[in-house]
Amino acid sequence: MADKLEFNSSRAAEVAGKVDEIGDRIRSVLSRMSAAESAGSGCWGGDETGQKFANGENGNGYLAGSKNCHKVLDSAWEFLSGEKGYAPEFRDATKALHAMEQHNRARFGGGRK
C-alpha cells in the first residue's frame, strides 16, 4: 500500500471534461450517421431482393446490422459520459477525495494547501 496519495482535482476535472468532449463527438457522429441513413432508408425497394437485403434470411440483414451498430456507438457514449460513465464517476471520485481531504485537514489541523 502506498504511503500517501497525491491527487490533483483540477487536473481530474480537466480529464473528465475531455472525456465528455469525446463522448459528444461520438454522439455527433451517430447523429450524422442516422441522418444519412434515414435519407436513404427504403432505397432497396419492396421487392423480394430488397426485402432480403433489408431483413436478411433470419433477421440479420441491413436493418438489424444498422440497429446493432447504433447500439455499439451509443454504448460508447454511455461508457464515457452516461449516468454511470467514466466522466461522471471520475467527477464523483474527485468530490469524494476532496471531501476526505477537507475532513482530514479539519481533523488533523492544517496540512498542505
Rank of each mutant, 00 (worst) to 15 (best):
M1L: 04
A2G: 01
D3K: 10
D3Q: 09
K4Q: 12
K4N: 08
K4L: 00
L5R: 06
L5Q: 09
E6A: 08
E6S: 09
N8E: 10
N8H: 08
S9C: 00
S9E: 10
R11L: 07
A12D: 02
A12S: 15
A12N: 01
A13D: 15
E14H: 06
E14T: 09
E14A: 13
V15F: 10
A16F: 02
G17T: 13
G17S: 15
G17D: 12
K18Q: 13
K18R: 14
I22M: 04
I22T: 01
D24H: 11
D24Q: 15
D24I: 13
I26G: 00
I26A: 03
R27D: 12
R27S: 13
S28G: 03
S28F: 04
V29W: 10
V29H: 10
M33A: 11
A35I: 02
G40N: 02
G40V: 03
S41Y: 11
W44K: 05
G46A: 06
G46R: 01
G46E: 04
G46V: 06
G46S: 09
T49H: 07
G50R: 00
K52A: 13
K52P: 01
K52R: 14
F53M: 11
A54V: 05
A54E: 13
E57P: 05
G61C: 10
G61F: 05
G61S: 08
L63A: 10
G65A: 12
S66L: 14
K67C: 11
N68M: 14
N68D: 14
H70I: 00
H70S: 07
K71T: 15
K71C: 04
K71L: 13
V72S: 11
L73R: 08
L73S: 11
D74K: 07
S75E: 12
S75I: 03
A76T: 03
E78H: 08
E78R: 08
F79K: 07
L80I: 05
S81D: 04
E83S: 14
E83T: 15
K84C: 05
G85A: 07
Y86H: 06
Y86I: 09
A87F: 05
P88K: 08
F90D: 05
D92L: 05
D92K: 15
T94R: 07
A96V: 04
L97V: 12
H98M: 14
H98T: 15
H98K: 15
A99D: 14
A99V: 01
M100E: 02
E101I: 00
E101G: 07
E101T: 09
Q102C: 07
Q102T: 10
H103W: 05
R105C: 05
R105Q: 12
F108N: 11
G110A: 11
R112N: 10
K113G: 11
K113C: 11
K113N: 14
